[in-house]
Amino acid sequence: MASPLQPYPQLRSVLQRLQGVPPWALLSLVINGLLFITVVVMLRQLSRAGDDVLRQANAFAADPYVAVAPFDPELGRRHSLDYEQWVALLAAEAQAAVALNAPRQNILLGDSLTLWFPSTMLPGRKTWINQAISGENTGGLRDRLYLLDDTSPEAVFIMVGINDLIWGGSEADLVYNVRRMVNYLRQTHPEARVVVQSILPHGGETATWEGRDRLLTLSPDRVREVNDQLKLVAVETGADFLNLYPLFANGDGYLRADLTTDGLHLNQNGYMVWRTALALFNETDFQP
């Protein structure tokens, strides 16, 4: 399979001339370049989609971590990239990390909660590779893990499953898929720590997210039960389990209002809580 960098000899030439630059800076440069190319192709395909799409695409071209932002009031809106385009983009980013031999690779896997994690808030002294897609479920994530086969992560963090529950998926399938993910990652990256993170609570009656009615059918007890099963999967497969749920839940088991924008997604305070948990987890040698 040809490298995604082969069609762009100018990019390869630039990378050769910048070999003295720190890998962290090179990785950012390559990812931005690949993202720009992807967005240009996307704009040609979607030129009739209107000015709103163009504004979102320009935001992506300016910064690979800018989405319709975790601090934007219209969090229910989807990205202008469709699922297949996101997968292609993430494949290119993973290959860029491989090509640059990025040090201390830590991979984030999940849905919009992970996707919108501000890169500037992630713990330092690591290369964070965000491989999340908005709206992702466990089946979709399971089927694209092969994109990471050539990477060399020291840790892989998984948070996925809330979309399965929101859209009517079964707990059994959710847990089965996470088990398959962990087993696959432990086989392909035996030296890496695989960290299963708990599903977060939602805001219940106070939620303003566009799918609020679906949230109301998902009880806190069911979320806790799924998290108990995910912890068991981690124990049985030799992975680690990071239980974030208690940090985000109020006394009734719903998402704390001060940590969310709409009862499902996180605000800056929410990401600070998550960031602190990741930092402490790293400092304690990934032990739960």
Rank of each mutant, 00 (worst) to 15 (best):
T120F: 06
T206L: 10
A57E: 13
N269Y: 02
A96Q: 01
Q45H: 15
A2M: 10
D262R: 03
T127H: 14
A67Y: 13
V235H: 07
S170R: 07
R180W: 00
L27Q: 13
G211M: 09
E283S: 13
K231M: 11
S80F: 15
Q95L: 00
L100F: 11
R55E: 15
E136A: 14
A2N: 14
R17Q: 14
V40H: 09
P190L: 03
P118E: 05
H265Y: 08
K126D: 04
V196Q: 04
P73H: 07
G203A: 05
L259M: 12
Q16M: 06
P201A: 09
L266I: 04
T208I: 02
I166D: 02
L122H: 04
P153W: 02
V160S: 03
A92K: 15
L15E: 11
G204S: 03
R144Y: 04
V182G: 04
S198I: 06
L147H: 12
Q287V: 08
D111G: 09
W24I: 05
G140L: 10
A69T: 14
D173C: 01
P23V: 12
G124S: 13
L89P: 00
I199R: 03
I133M: 09
L264Y: 08
L247S: 07
M121T: 01
G270D: 07
S112L: 05
N282W: 12
D258L: 00
Q229M: 13
G50M: 05
A207T: 03
L148H: 06
R55Q: 10
D51E: 15
D252Y: 03
S119P: 00
V53Q: 08
T237E: 14
G124F: 00
R256A: 08
V14S: 06
D262K: 08
P153C: 05
S80I: 12
V196G: 09
R224L: 12
E205Q: 12
P23W: 00
L255K: 04
Q287R: 13
N32D: 11
Q287N: 07
L18N: 05
L109S: 04
G263S: 09
T114Q: 07
P64H: 06
R144M: 05
A2W: 06
V226K: 03
V273Y: 02
V223N: 03
T120Q: 12
A239E: 09
G135D: 01
M42R: 14
V195N: 05
S13I: 01
N227S: 04
E283V: 00
Y83E: 13
V66C: 11
V178S: 04
R186L: 07
L100V: 09
S28A: 10
P4G: 07
D164S: 10
G251W: 02
F157G: 00
S198F: 10
T284L: 09
Q268V: 07
A172H: 12
T284P: 00
H189S: 04
L145I: 12
G139L: 13
R144W: 07
D240L: 07
T38A: 15
G33K: 06
L35E: 13
T120E: 13
V226I: 10
L266A: 02
A88E: 14
D173Q: 15
L185I: 05
V233A: 07
R44G: 08
G140Q: 14
P103M: 03
